[in-house]
Amino acid sequence: MINLKLLKPKVMKELSSGFAENNPKGVQVQGFMEPESYKKFLAAVAKAKLKKSEVRDTHSYFEADSPALKFFSSREFLAFAAAVTGKKIKKVTCSVRIFLKDCYTLMHDEKKASGIELFFDMTPQWMQEWGGSTVYLTDSGEKLILPPSPNSLIIAVAGKSYVKYVNHLAGNEGRLVVYGTMK
């Protein structure tokens, strides 16, 4: 399922050193799944029945479980994540989330998360002016803005990110991701 180009030793070494050296620790991978696997994954996720999850001082989004998410607990993914982070990954807890108009997460929500987090993005078309980007704060408080990008994966330390409020310019579009934490 993982793009074979990423699994080459040279590329894995680059991802691993990128994770260790970036501030905050993390790495973004484009073209994460093989194209055919990505299509099948998208089709499976599309069947998920999303329900609103909202506590206005922490987050607002729609969320669902999906059988397709078992991929993120597979040996293949756990080995990949362990190689990138240099840590032994035993467990991944994740869900499908969609950020429609008026959806967001706040920093102090995700601060409670410990360990490593993942964002697997499945948003086909997105304008940055709509909001909805994943924003990471560096140790010095600078913003690292990662706009949605389909079939891209972010693996980073948890508690340093938020999803910017999606404004009304997004209309009926939504940012679709898998969000998870790894321990």
Binding site: R56, D57, G131
Partner: peptide, 9 residues
């Protein structure tokens, strides 16, 4: 337009 302030106390 598009400016906002989310929930706080």
């Amino acid at each position: 337009k598009t400016d906002y302030l989310l929930c706080h106390d």
